[in-house]
Simulated scan of single mutants.
Amino acid sequence: MTPIQGGSDRSPRRIKALLFDLDGTIAETDSVHFPAWAEILREHGHEVDWAFYRENISGRLNPEIVAEYIPGMSEEETVALVERKESHFRARVGGLEPTSGLVDLIRFASSRDIRSALVTNAPRANAVAVIEALGLGELFSPIVSADDVSAGKPSPEPYLEALARLGVLPEEALVFEDSRSGIASALAAGVPTVGVASTQEPEFLLAAGAFTTVADFTDPHLADLLRPEP
């Protein structure tokens, strides 16, 4: 675990819920999203390599990507194109693996009556497809997806919706995020956030507002965060 520096020093006290982002947090999914977007954008005159994808596409909302790189599409055309891209993604999630330590952390939390929820900008169909591919079954409840809110991350709405469904206060939850927009969303909802350094460097996540970072969920200090302080 990276020492607290640069981010908020407000770590949680008594945890009742863990809120997990999906893409890049519970699994490395960019390797599936990248070819899906590359194929779509190539049809519209854009050659997308890995560096361009990571810098300009990863973590963004689909309508934003379409509006920037395929301007002039109608709402109906945008919806159809995004669904084609997401269908491409869902057809290829079979080889995904959970981030190291994820299942053990959720089981450890559950043994202490701490619930685990999934909060994602992805469509619900994607979230369900990934969870099933990972073999995680019913470990996440609730699942808050793009279909459940009017504004995605970095708006606080997804995390506020999750808190409301769980019936917990922001200070009673802990978020795990791997992106600037996700951290911004969680902090705007008032929830302390751990940066998962899967797609970004720890320093980037701390600067974005995470109070600490981990490489994955095997970090032994995570258990300390879930134990009530005396």
Score class of each variant (00 low, 15 high):
Gln5Trp: 08
Gly6His: 10
Gly6Ser: 10
Gly7His: 14
Arg10Thr: 15
Ser11Lys: 12
Arg13Trp: 09
Arg14Lys: 14
Ile15Arg: 10
Asp21Pro: 08
Asp23Ile: 01
Ile26Asn: 09
Ala27Tyr: 03
Ala27Thr: 10
Ala27Gln: 03
Glu28Lys: 12
Thr29Lys: 12
Val32Met: 04
Val32Cys: 01
His33Ala: 04
Trp37Val: 02
Ala38Val: 02
Ala38Met: 03
Ala38His: 02
Glu39Thr: 05
Glu39Gln: 08
Arg42Phe: 00
Arg42Asp: 02
Arg42Ser: 07
Glu43His: 01
His44Asp: 01
Gly45Ala: 07
His46Ile: 13
Ala51His: 02
Ala51Glu: 11
Phe52Lys: 12
Phe52Leu: 14
Tyr53Ile: 10
Arg54Pro: 00
Arg54Trp: 05
Glu55Phe: 01
Asn56Met: 11
Asn56Trp: 14
Asn56Cys: 10
Asn56Ile: 02
Asn62Lys: 04
Glu64Trp: 09
Ile65Glu: 13
Tyr69Trp: 15
Tyr69Leu: 15
Ile70Ala: 08
Gly72Phe: 10
Met73Ala: 01
Met73Val: 01
Ser74Gly: 15
Glu75Pro: 00
Glu76Gln: 15
Leu81Gln: 05
Leu81Glu: 06
Leu81Asp: 05
His88Tyr: 11
Phe89Cys: 09
Ala91Cys: 01
Ala91Pro: 00
Gly94Cys: 03
Glu97Pro: 00
Thr99Ile: 06
Gly101Thr: 13
Leu102His: 03
Leu102Thr: 06
Leu105Thr: 08
Leu105Lys: 08
Ser110Gln: 15
Arg112Val: 08
Arg112Pro: 02
